[in-house]
């Protein structure tokens, strides 16, 4: 019974978005233009730096990294925007009165609206895989595990930023702040290996690489080195720590929620 509610919410969201087909195609084209500019920039950088692989490898890296980040909604933290809207306009009241988990219900509804985008990110990743010379089963297993962790970390960031709406109605700007930070430090604009010294170590130990760098680099490297195990460990640590914390933060916010009307 409860599961069917979430399923219907997902289907409803999907129906909503597929009504606007031209929008879907334009979004895909937009993503293509965005990725083309990043790959073009890095192909220029790649020509001047020793140790950077060729354009094919760079293309593969950025396609997978951007695909993963889009898939787990860490790109623009859109789910946090949904929460912000519900809190700001009072729509959350209707969900709180029903015998459902509002966080999950809203998430499934949101997931439906992203159905086509998700498909596009999967295609992006698949194209990224095609550019790789070879893939082992071990890499695929590790990639799937890292994808799961990316999903958890992405969800946590969304819930945290979304829950800030209980304290400030203008949390949308905070969502932009987090998006900028994630964009640079997760590896979608620049591989983390490009940073050096303490900055690099700190970044590798932060939750950001889990969102794009780790899944992408796993597919680029055949052998797991210390650095990759370190990111893996850090990602598991952050996922385990931040997931319960984000729900705690949401519950704390709910206590502050006030709305008039239905």
């Amino acid at each position: 019974m409860t599961i069917s509610v979430y399923k219907e919410s997902l289907v409803y969201g999907l129906t909503q978005v597929t009504n606007y087909r031209s929008e879907v195609w334009l979004t895909i084209l937009n993503k293509f233009v965005y990725l083309a500019s990043i790959i073009f920039l890095w192909s220029i950088i790649g020509k001047t730096v020793n140790g950077i692989s060729g354009v094919t490898s760079l293309t593969s890296y950025f396609l997978i990294a951007n695909g993963v980040q889009g898939l787990v909604d860490a790109e623009s933290l859109r789910y946090s925007k949904v929460i912000n809207k519900e809190v700001k306009l009072g729509g959350l009241s209707a969900h709180l009165l029903r015998p459902i988990n509002p966080v999950l219900f809203l998430y499934f509804s949101f997931l439906g609206t992203r159905g086509v985008t998700l498909l596009m990110t999967i295609i992006l990743m698949t194209v990224g895989f095609v550019f790789l010379p070879s893939i082992t089963v071990f890499q695929i297993i590790l990639f799937l595990i890292s994808l799961l962790m990316a999903f958890v970390v992405g969800f946590v960031f969304n819930l945290f930023v979304g829950s800030l709406s209980f304290w400030t109605p203008e949390a949308n700007h905070l969502q932009n702040v987090f998006s900028h930070i994630i964009r640079v430090f997760s590896g979608v604009l620049i591989p983390i290996s490009f940073f050096s010294g303490t900055t690099k170590t700190l970044l590798l130990l932060s939750p950001f690489p889990a969102l794009a760098y780790l899944p992408s680099i796993i597919m680029q490297t055949k052998i797991m080195n210390t650095e990759m195990w370190m990111i893996f460990g850090a990602s598991i640590f952050w996922s385990g720590l931040l997931l319960p914390m984000s729900f705690w933060f949401w519950k704390k916010g709910i206590r502050r929620y006030e709305a008039i009307g239905i």
């Binding site: 203008e170 700007h173 900028h180 640079v184 940073f195 050096s196």
Partner: peptide, 23 residues
């Protein structure tokens, strides 16, 4: 909010540039 967002963008962009020009 807008100010916080634009300042963060600028700072992260400068970090990106310094990382690139470090190499």
């Amino acid at each position: 909010g807008g100010l916080a967002s634009t300042i963060t963008y600028m700072l992260t962009y400068l970090v990106l540039l310094s990382a690139i020009f470090g190499r």
